[in-house]
Computed example of a mutant assay.
Amino acid sequence: MVKIIFARHGQSEANLAGILAGRRGANPLTATGRQQARDAAGLLPSGVALWRVSDIARCAETADLLMSAYAEKHGSAAPTAAVMEEFSEVDYGDWSGRRLEELRTLPAWDRVQNNPQDMVFPGGEAQHDAWLRTRRGVRLVLSELSVLESGATAVVVTHGDIIKMAVADALGMPLQHFQRTAAAPGSLTTVDYSGRVPVLTAMSVSSEGQTGQARTLGGGA
């Protein structure tokens, strides 16, 4: 069983404030977010073969806490995570640092939600480009897993929209429909890639039972 477990970073200060952080500025985890990262270790299987992480600081902070708690649980040395820019946050450009309630009033918000394949964030990235690099990142991780023992599992610590894009791709959904899923901060989402087609086996699972928010960016606060 070849699996990728996508871990969303824990609650950040921007999540708590209802701000779209994107790639800009310091955005550390809250106390809740740090606890979410530690608690997620208890939901992971033993013998994780690969750890990969976004290049954004809140994901690195989450990965460090998650891996430390994982090592403590299994009585092993703490693993290390290799950075993969393919799993970086969407570059929201000029939308970064703005409140979500304000962004929802913009004419382009409908495009983000219903026609993301046509959305280019002003001063930032096209959602289609983020989709393509996410797919590339998944395939790189699967290639690494393929040379390991049967049943290898990878953990990828990344962002809500990136997880949603990976899930949509696994389910054969076009980018247009990726907003039909949501991933909560500190949650785990698992895709089994061992069969003829990928199978989503868990979505937005967290120890506290928090769920992602619909019709937002990044899977909700």
Rank of each mutant, 00 (worst) to 15 (best):
I5P: 14
A7E: 07
A7S: 13
R8G: 01
Q11I: 05
A14I: 02
N15E: 02
G18N: 00
A21P: 08
N27Q: 00
R34A: 13
Q36V: 03
R38Y: 02
D39S: 12
L43V: 08
L44C: 07
P45A: 02
S46V: 13
V48E: 10
W51M: 09
R58F: 02
R58M: 03
R58W: 01
A63S: 15
M67V: 05
S76Q: 12
A77H: 13
M84L: 15
E89K: 11
Y92V: 03
D94T: 14
W95H: 12
G97V: 03
L100M: 09
L100V: 04
E101A: 14
P107Y: 09
R111C: 15
N114P: 07
P116Y: 00
Q117D: 12
D118H: 15
P122C: 02
G124Y: 10
A126F: 06
A130Y: 07
A130H: 06
R133L: 08
T134W: 14
R136G: 07
G137R: 04
G137N: 06
R139V: 09
E149H: 15
S150Y: 09
T153G: 09
V156H: 04
H159I: 00
I162W: 11
K164I: 05
M165D: 06
V167G: 08
A168V: 05
G172M: 06
M173D: 04
Q176T: 13
Q176S: 13
A182Q: 02
A182R: 01
A184M: 06
G186V: 00
D192G: 02
D192V: 01
V197Y: 15
V199N: 15
L200K: 04
M203C: 15
Q210C: 09
G212W: 00
G218Q: 01
G220T: 04
A221I: 00
